[in-house]
Design a protein around this nucleic acid. Structure first.
Lengths: 202, 202
DNA sequence: GACGCCGTTGACTGACCAGTCAATCGCGTT
DNA sequence: AACGCGATTGACTGGTCAGTCAACGGCGTC
């Protein structure tokens, strides 16, 4: 059977190109790099990138959607648990921090080239990005109804503050503005929830 | 005296080009627009842009630095006041929100094309951007020493969370993810400080 | 009213690069 | 071992645009 073997081989080659693209995008940035850089990094010919992807954009789209959908699922799953809202937020912060620990280059690409690039790719994927905000807002809304969270801050606003705080910290690590050692990652999970839920006040 | 009159006229023409650039960058994005778009918007010939600016980049650099330095001064001035840290943070949040109210297009350009574009212009201006984080961190540090803020969250982290929360809300307004009416802007000043200082917990 | 300076013009050039495509390769099939 | 087909190659094309520059115009000066 050639079909099964070659289908697996094709998927593998596609992965090789995607992984190379992560490294190139992280190093040079999406707009600055050339498609030939991705091909070189992957050790394949220029044209092969276009055999597996319709365009340079589609490579980045694929990387983003793959990972973002995993995150959305993780948030939904967390929200389904019968635990306090504070713990839900901690689980979400943990998931994002762990994503960074596991593959910092991929997270750099997603944040820098998509999430924070709202004029180019962010625009295309705005609906997907918004889904994350809305899931978090929903957690806050339910916590307010249950009396866990104060009712005067709107859920949409709280969601933006929570997500914005996490993303800013990741951005700090990515660009060496904040120390990003192992202990710092662990600490950040607690700090972000402590700050947003508990507040800085003594 | 021709020199004085023409110097004023030159400064005015330069301003016309800068203001046109804000509109074009906000509408089309820095990378997507052409220098000829700026010239057309300003009602001047293509080449004149290069009479007043060395490059397309320098136009954006100028817009960013002009505004960012005003903000840094405002933060320094706020910090010099003999008021509680919570009020200092409120004043900073107010300043940023008012900047958005006064010129949303300019704020969009600064946030989208510089502050959140850490791979391109953000890199160039990283030191300037960092200054803002450090000034905020300093406010937090002093508040911790004075016993106003809890001592267990590091000042650098708190600064990132505070700034990240504000920027995320602005980004929400810019891309119509959050309602950005007059009352919403007013509310946001309170909410961001309430959330970061007071916490979401009931 | 002739001269010169400098703000202004816009056609042009050189470089860059995404995407195409015809040619080649190599593996499985018969 | 000859055939076929999808994977692979990389030279080439077409279009885009930042930045240059030679020429022009209008205002002040003498």
């Amino acid at each position: 059977m050639a079909t099964a073997r070659s289908a697996a081989a094709a998927a593998e080659k596609r992965r090789v190109i995607l992984d190379a693209a992560v490294r190139v995008f992280a190093r040079q940035g999406f707009h600055t790099c050339r498609v030939s850089d991705i091909a070189d990094e992957a050790g394949v010919a220029y044209g092969l990138v276009y055999h597996y992807f319709r365009s340079k954009d589609e490579v980045l789209d694929t990387l983003f959607l793959e990972r973002w959908n995993v995150m959305l699922d993780a948030i939904r799953e967390t929200d389904a648990q019968p635990i306090p809202a504070r713990e839900k937020l901690h689980a979400i912060a943990s998931f994002i921090v762990e994503s960074y620990r596991h593959d910092p280059e991929l997270m750099k690409v997603i944040i820098v080239e998509v999430t924070r690039a709202a004029n180019s790719f962010g625009q295309t994927h705005l609906a997907k990005i918004r889904e994350a905000y809305e899931l978090i807002a929903e957690i806050v809304r339910k916590a307010q109804q249950a009396g866990e969270f104060r009712p005067d801050v709107t859920p949409d606003f709280a969601a933006m503050a929570f997500y914005g705080a996490i993303e800013q910290v990741l951005t700090g690590w990515i660009f060496d503005v904040l120390p990003g050692g192992e202990e710092d990652l662990e600490q950040a999970k607690r700090f972000v929830v402590e700050t947003i839920c508990g507040g800085l006040d003594q």
